[in-house]
Protein backbone atom coordinates (compact mmCIF):
# COMPACT_ATOMS: atom_id res chain seq x y z
CA UNK A 1 0.00 0.00 0.00
CA UNK A 2 2.36 2.64 -1.31
CA UNK A 3 -0.28 5.40 -1.18
CA UNK A 4 -1.02 4.81 2.48
CA UNK A 5 2.67 4.55 3.36
CA UNK A 6 3.50 7.84 1.60
CA UNK A 7 0.58 9.58 3.23
CA UNK A 8 1.49 8.23 6.68
CA UNK A 9 5.07 9.45 6.32
CA UNK A 10 3.89 12.85 5.19
CA UNK A 11 1.46 13.21 8.12
CA UNK A 12 3.97 11.92 10.69
CA UNK A 13 6.67 14.29 9.39
CA UNK A 14 4.31 17.25 9.57
CA UNK A 15 3.11 16.44 13.10
CA UNK A 16 6.61 15.92 14.46
CA UNK A 17 7.96 19.09 12.79
CA UNK A 18 5.20 21.41 13.94
CA UNK A 19 5.28 19.98 17.44
CA UNK A 20 1.72 18.64 17.45
CA UNK A 21 3.19 15.39 18.72
CA UNK A 22 6.47 14.39 20.36
CA UNK A 23 6.36 10.79 19.25
CA UNK A 24 4.64 8.98 16.40
CA UNK A 25 3.65 5.33 16.74
CA UNK A 26 3.39 3.35 13.53
CA UNK A 27 4.82 0.28 11.87
CA UNK A 28 8.04 -0.47 10.05
CA UNK A 29 8.90 -3.42 7.88
CA UNK A 30 9.79 -6.44 9.98
CA UNK A 31 13.05 -8.33 9.67
CA UNK A 32 11.12 -11.37 8.48
CA UNK A 33 8.38 -11.30 5.81
CA UNK A 34 4.76 -10.73 6.94
CA UNK A 35 5.87 -9.52 10.39
CA UNK A 36 5.77 -5.76 10.40
CA UNK A 37 6.70 -4.36 13.74
CA UNK A 38 5.67 -1.35 15.79
CA UNK A 39 8.02 1.61 15.78
CA UNK A 40 8.15 4.83 17.81
CA UNK A 41 9.52 7.78 15.87
CA UNK A 42 10.69 11.01 17.48
CA UNK A 43 12.88 12.49 14.77
CA UNK A 44 11.03 13.90 11.72
CA UNK A 45 14.00 12.85 9.58
CA UNK A 46 13.23 9.21 10.31
CA UNK A 47 9.68 9.05 9.10
CA UNK A 48 10.82 7.11 6.05
CA UNK A 49 11.11 3.99 8.20
CA UNK A 50 7.31 4.02 8.53
CA UNK A 51 5.54 1.44 6.44
CA UNK A 52 2.03 0.17 5.83
CA UNK A 53 0.67 -2.99 4.23
CA UNK A 54 -1.50 -6.01 5.06
CA UNK A 55 1.00 -7.33 7.59
CA UNK A 56 0.40 -4.70 10.26
CA UNK A 57 -1.70 -6.91 12.51
CA UNK A 58 -0.13 -6.01 15.84
CA UNK A 59 -2.13 -3.64 17.99
CA UNK A 60 -0.42 -0.27 18.45
CA UNK A 61 -2.65 0.73 21.31
CA UNK A 62 -0.47 -1.56 23.39
CA UNK A 63 2.22 1.14 23.37
CA UNK A 64 0.04 3.92 24.75
CA UNK A 65 -0.51 2.80 28.32
CA UNK A 66 0.25 5.58 30.79
CA UNK A 67 2.45 7.56 28.44
CA UNK A 68 2.78 11.21 29.30
CA UNK A 69 3.90 12.87 26.06
CA UNK A 70 1.85 13.99 23.08
CA UNK A 71 1.46 11.08 20.75
CA UNK A 72 0.54 10.55 17.14
CA UNK A 73 -0.74 7.06 16.47
CA UNK A 74 -2.05 5.07 13.52
CA UNK A 75 -5.40 3.41 14.03
CA UNK A 76 -7.38 0.90 12.01
CA UNK A 77 -10.97 0.16 13.01
CA UNK A 78 -10.13 -2.28 15.78
CA UNK A 79 -7.07 -0.36 17.00
CA UNK A 80 -9.15 2.81 17.28
CA UNK A 81 -11.67 0.93 19.41
CA UNK A 82 -8.86 -0.18 21.70
CA UNK A 83 -7.71 3.43 21.93
CA UNK A 84 -11.25 4.45 22.92
CA UNK A 85 -11.23 1.68 25.54
CA UNK A 86 -7.89 2.97 26.84
CA UNK A 87 -9.32 6.48 27.16
CA UNK A 88 -12.43 5.21 28.95
CA UNK A 89 -10.23 3.23 31.34
CA UNK A 90 -8.00 6.27 32.07
CA UNK A 91 -4.88 4.76 30.57
CA UNK A 92 -4.35 7.73 28.27
CA UNK A 93 -5.98 11.12 27.74
CA UNK A 94 -7.77 12.01 24.52
CA UNK A 95 -6.04 15.43 24.49
CA UNK A 96 -2.64 13.73 24.35
CA UNK A 97 -3.48 11.90 21.16
CA UNK A 98 -3.51 12.75 17.51
CA UNK A 99 -5.15 9.74 15.90
CA UNK A 100 -4.35 9.07 12.27
CA UNK A 101 -7.10 6.84 10.95
CA UNK A 102 -6.61 4.03 8.47
CA UNK A 103 -9.58 2.68 6.55
CA UNK A 104 -8.74 -0.97 6.77
CA UNK A 105 -9.53 -3.91 4.54
CA UNK A 106 -7.96 -6.55 6.74
CA UNK A 107 -4.72 -8.22 7.66
CA UNK A 108 -3.19 -11.31 6.17
CA UNK A 109 -3.11 -14.55 8.16
CA UNK A 110 0.58 -15.38 8.02
CA UNK A 111 -0.11 -18.99 9.02
CA UNK A 112 -2.52 -19.49 6.12
CA UNK A 113 0.15 -18.26 3.70
CA UNK A 114 2.77 -20.48 5.24
CA UNK A 115 0.43 -23.48 4.97
CA UNK A 116 -0.42 -22.67 1.38
CA UNK A 117 3.24 -22.83 0.35
CA UNK A 118 3.69 -26.15 2.13
CA UNK A 119 5.62 -24.69 5.05
CA UNK A 120 8.55 -23.68 2.85
CA UNK A 121 10.66 -20.74 3.89
CA UNK A 122 9.25 -17.45 2.64
CA UNK A 123 11.84 -14.88 1.65
CA UNK A 124 9.55 -12.03 0.69
CA UNK A 125 5.87 -11.15 0.69
CA UNK A 126 4.96 -7.95 -1.12
CA UNK A 127 1.52 -6.45 -1.37
CA UNK A 128 0.44 -5.22 -4.79
CA UNK A 129 -3.03 -3.80 -4.57
CA UNK A 130 -5.40 -6.66 -3.77
CA UNK A 131 -2.72 -9.28 -4.17
CA UNK A 132 0.13 -10.60 -2.09
CA UNK A 133 3.13 -11.92 -3.95
CA UNK A 134 5.05 -14.45 -1.96
CA UNK A 135 8.52 -15.61 -2.96
CA UNK A 136 10.84 -18.30 -1.67
CA UNK A 137 14.11 -19.77 -2.92
CA UNK A 138 12.39 -21.94 -5.55
CA UNK A 139 8.81 -20.75 -5.78
CA UNK A 140 6.62 -17.73 -6.34
CA UNK A 141 2.93 -17.63 -5.53
CA UNK A 142 0.30 -14.92 -5.84
CA UNK A 143 -2.56 -14.74 -3.36
CA UNK A 144 -5.81 -12.82 -3.43
CA UNK A 145 -5.64 -11.00 -0.12
CA UNK A 146 -9.40 -11.46 0.37
CA UNK A 147 -8.86 -15.20 0.56
CA UNK A 148 -6.08 -15.22 3.14
CA UNK A 149 -7.42 -12.73 5.69
CA UNK A 150 -7.08 -13.31 9.41
CA UNK A 151 -10.28 -14.92 10.64
CA UNK A 152 -11.19 -11.86 12.73
CA UNK A 153 -10.72 -9.52 9.75
CA UNK A 154 -12.89 -11.72 7.54
CA UNK A 155 -15.85 -11.03 9.85
CA UNK A 156 -14.90 -7.47 10.86
CA UNK A 157 -17.82 -5.03 11.06
CA UNK A 158 -15.85 -1.90 11.99
CA UNK A 159 -13.10 -1.48 9.46
CA UNK A 160 -13.11 2.29 9.65
CA UNK A 161 -11.73 3.94 12.76
CA UNK A 162 -14.34 5.27 15.18
CA UNK A 163 -12.31 8.12 16.66
CA UNK A 164 -9.87 10.09 14.49
CA UNK A 165 -8.21 13.45 14.00
CA UNK A 166 -7.22 12.85 10.42
CA UNK A 167 -7.78 10.09 7.89
CA UNK A 168 -5.14 8.66 5.60
CA UNK A 169 -7.78 8.00 2.91
CA UNK A 170 -11.54 7.94 2.39
CA UNK A 171 -13.46 5.40 4.48
CA UNK A 172 -13.89 1.92 3.02
CA UNK A 173 -17.35 0.35 2.83
CA UNK A 174 -18.16 -1.79 5.87
CA UNK A 175 -18.78 -5.49 5.25
CA UNK A 176 -22.45 -6.40 5.15
CA UNK A 177 -24.02 -9.68 6.13
CA UNK A 178 -21.05 -11.17 7.94
CA UNK A 179 -21.77 -13.76 10.59
CA UNK A 180 -19.22 -12.95 13.25
CA UNK A 181 -20.19 -15.62 15.77
CA UNK A 182 -20.68 -18.73 13.66
CA UNK A 183 -17.79 -20.54 15.35
CA UNK A 184 -19.09 -19.66 18.82
CA UNK A 185 -22.55 -20.90 17.92
CA UNK A 186 -21.23 -24.24 16.78
CA UNK A 187 -19.59 -24.73 20.19
CA UNK A 188 -22.74 -23.55 21.96
CA UNK A 189 -24.61 -26.39 20.33
CA UNK A 190 -22.37 -29.06 21.86
CA UNK A 191 -22.91 -31.19 24.96
CA UNK A 192 -20.92 -30.03 28.02
CA UNK A 193 -18.44 -32.88 27.67
CA UNK A 194 -17.85 -32.11 23.99
CA UNK A 195 -17.32 -28.46 24.83
CA UNK A 196 -14.75 -29.41 27.40
CA UNK A 197 -12.97 -31.65 24.90
CA UNK A 198 -13.06 -28.88 22.29
CA UNK A 199 -11.36 -26.36 24.58
CA UNK A 200 -8.97 -28.91 26.06
CA UNK A 201 -7.80 -29.82 22.59
CA UNK A 202 -7.68 -26.15 21.57
CA UNK A 203 -5.17 -25.21 24.25
CA UNK A 204 -3.32 -28.52 24.52
CA UNK A 205 -0.22 -27.14 22.83
CA UNK A 206 -0.08 -23.95 24.87
CA UNK A 207 3.41 -23.22 26.19
CA UNK A 208 2.26 -20.60 28.69
CA UNK A 209 4.59 -18.12 27.00
CA UNK A 210 2.01 -15.36 27.55
CA UNK A 211 2.68 -13.77 24.17
CA UNK A 212 -1.09 -13.53 23.68
CA UNK A 213 -1.38 -11.54 26.87
CA UNK A 214 1.56 -9.31 26.06
CA UNK A 215 0.29 -8.48 22.58
CA UNK A 216 -3.10 -7.41 23.89
CA UNK A 217 -3.63 -3.74 24.74
CA UNK A 218 -6.20 -4.69 27.37
CA UNK A 219 -3.60 -6.52 29.44
CA UNK A 220 -1.85 -3.59 31.07
CA UNK A 221 -1.92 -4.66 34.73
CA UNK A 222 1.45 -3.91 36.38
CA UNK A 223 1.45 -7.49 37.70
CA UNK A 224 -0.69 -9.99 35.85
CA UNK A 225 -2.54 -12.57 37.95
CA UNK A 226 -0.45 -15.32 36.38
CA UNK A 227 2.79 -13.72 37.56
CA UNK A 228 1.63 -12.96 41.07
CA UNK A 229 3.17 -15.27 43.66
CA UNK A 230 1.72 -13.92 46.92
CA UNK A 231 -0.92 -15.18 46.74
CA UNK A 232 -0.38 -17.47 43.78
CA UNK A 233 -3.69 -17.48 41.94
CA UNK A 234 -2.81 -20.08 39.37
CA UNK A 235 -0.08 -22.70 39.03
CA UNK A 236 2.81 -21.71 36.79
CA UNK A 237 3.56 -25.03 35.16
CA UNK A 238 1.87 -26.23 32.00
CA UNK A 239 -0.46 -28.49 33.93
CA UNK A 240 -3.61 -28.65 31.75
CA UNK A 241 -5.86 -27.37 34.54
CA UNK A 242 -3.61 -24.39 35.20
CA UNK A 243 -3.45 -23.66 31.49
CA UNK A 244 -7.23 -23.78 31.26
CA UNK A 245 -7.45 -21.46 34.27
CA UNK A 246 -5.06 -19.03 32.60
CA UNK A 247 -7.07 -18.95 29.37
CA UNK A 248 -10.38 -18.74 31.10
CA UNK A 249 -9.34 -15.87 33.33
CA UNK A 250 -7.40 -13.98 30.70
CA UNK A 251 -10.52 -14.03 28.56
CA UNK A 252 -12.69 -12.96 31.43
CA UNK A 253 -10.42 -10.00 32.13
CA UNK A 254 -11.17 -8.90 28.58
CA UNK A 255 -14.95 -9.17 28.95
CA UNK A 256 -16.74 -6.21 27.41
CA UNK A 257 -13.36 -4.79 26.33
CA UNK A 258 -12.08 -7.05 23.56
CA UNK A 259 -12.29 -5.59 20.06
CA UNK A 260 -11.44 -8.87 18.32
CA UNK A 261 -8.34 -7.24 16.82
CA UNK A 262 -6.69 -10.64 16.52
CA UNK A 263 -3.29 -9.58 17.87
CA UNK A 264 -3.34 -12.33 20.51
CA UNK A 265 -3.91 -15.04 17.95
CA UNK A 266 -1.42 -13.56 15.53
CA UNK A 267 1.48 -13.79 17.97
CA UNK A 268 0.91 -17.28 19.37
CA UNK A 269 3.98 -19.38 18.54
CA UNK A 270 1.91 -22.55 18.29
CA UNK A 271 -1.14 -21.11 16.51
CA UNK A 272 -3.79 -21.45 19.23
CA UNK A 273 -7.17 -19.86 18.53
CA UNK A 274 -7.62 -18.34 21.95
CA UNK A 275 -10.15 -15.90 20.48
CA UNK A 276 -12.66 -18.74 20.94
CA UNK A 277 -12.77 -17.70 24.59
CA UNK A 278 -13.00 -13.93 24.13
CA UNK A 279 -15.49 -14.22 21.28
CA UNK A 280 -18.00 -15.97 23.49
CA UNK A 281 -17.80 -13.01 25.88
CA UNK A 282 -18.07 -10.54 23.00
CA UNK A 283 -21.16 -12.36 21.82
CA UNK A 284 -22.71 -12.31 25.29
CA UNK A 285 -21.88 -8.62 25.71
CA UNK A 286 -23.59 -7.93 22.42
CA UNK A 287 -26.65 -10.09 23.08
CA UNK A 288 -27.19 -9.31 26.75
CA UNK A 289 -25.98 -5.71 26.96
CA UNK A 290 -26.12 -4.51 23.33
CA UNK A 291 -22.47 -3.68 23.74
CA UNK A 292 -19.52 -3.77 21.39
CA UNK A 293 -16.30 -2.53 22.94
CA UNK A 294 -14.77 0.82 22.10
CA UNK A 295 -17.38 2.29 19.77
CA UNK A 296 -17.93 5.48 21.73
CA UNK A 297 -16.36 7.68 24.38
CA UNK A 298 -19.80 8.63 25.66
CA UNK A 299 -20.94 5.38 27.24
CA UNK A 300 -19.52 3.40 30.16
CA UNK A 301 -18.90 -0.31 29.55
CA UNK A 302 -21.44 -2.85 30.89
CA UNK A 303 -19.24 -4.27 33.65
CA UNK A 304 -18.75 -0.81 35.07
CA UNK A 305 -22.33 0.37 35.46
CA UNK A 306 -25.42 -0.95 37.16
CA UNK A 307 -28.81 -0.77 35.56
CA UNK A 308 -31.89 -2.17 37.28
CA UNK A 309 -32.78 -4.07 34.13
CA UNK A 310 -29.33 -5.67 33.73
CA UNK A 311 -29.26 -9.31 32.70
CA UNK A 312 -29.31 -11.40 35.88
CA UNK A 313 -30.81 -14.76 35.01
CA UNK A 314 -27.87 -16.54 36.62
CA UNK A 315 -28.52 -15.14 40.10
CA UNK A 316 -31.06 -16.69 42.45
Amino acid sequence: MIQYTDKIREIAGRLLKDGTVEVFIGYRKGTVPMMNEPVLIRDPDQVDTLHWDVNCGLNLCNYLTRRTEKIGILATGCNSRNIVTHIIENQIKREQLYIVGIPCTGMVDHRAVKRAVGGKEILSAEQQGEKLIVKGADFEKTFEIKEILQSNCAVCRHRNPVEVDEMVADPVPEQEGVEPYKDVESVEGMEPRKKWEFFTRLISRCLRCYACRNACPLCYCPTCFVDESRPQWVGKSNDPTDTMTFHFLRAYHCAGRCTDCGACERVCPVGISMRQFTKKLNKDAEELFSWEAGLTLEQRPPLDVYRPDDYNDFIK
Binding site: E197, F198, F314, K316
Partner: peptide, 17 residues
Protein backbone atom coordinates in the same frame (compact mmCIF):
# COMPACT_ATOMS: atom_id res chain seq x y z
CA UNK B 1 -21.21 -18.58 34.42
CA UNK B 2 -21.87 -18.37 30.69
CA UNK B 3 -18.21 -18.69 29.81
CA UNK B 4 -17.62 -21.56 32.24
CA UNK B 5 -20.56 -23.39 30.76
CA UNK B 6 -19.30 -22.55 27.29
CA UNK B 7 -16.02 -24.35 28.00
CA UNK B 8 -17.84 -27.40 29.29
CA UNK B 9 -18.78 -27.00 32.94
CA UNK B 10 -22.28 -28.48 33.29
CA UNK B 11 -25.19 -26.09 33.86
CA UNK B 12 -26.26 -26.90 37.41
CA UNK B 13 -22.77 -27.03 38.84
CA UNK B 14 -22.20 -23.34 39.35
CA UNK B 15 -24.65 -21.19 41.30
CA UNK B 16 -24.81 -17.54 42.17
CA UNK B 17 -27.02 -15.96 44.75
Amino acid sequence: KNLLEHIGIEPGRLHFS
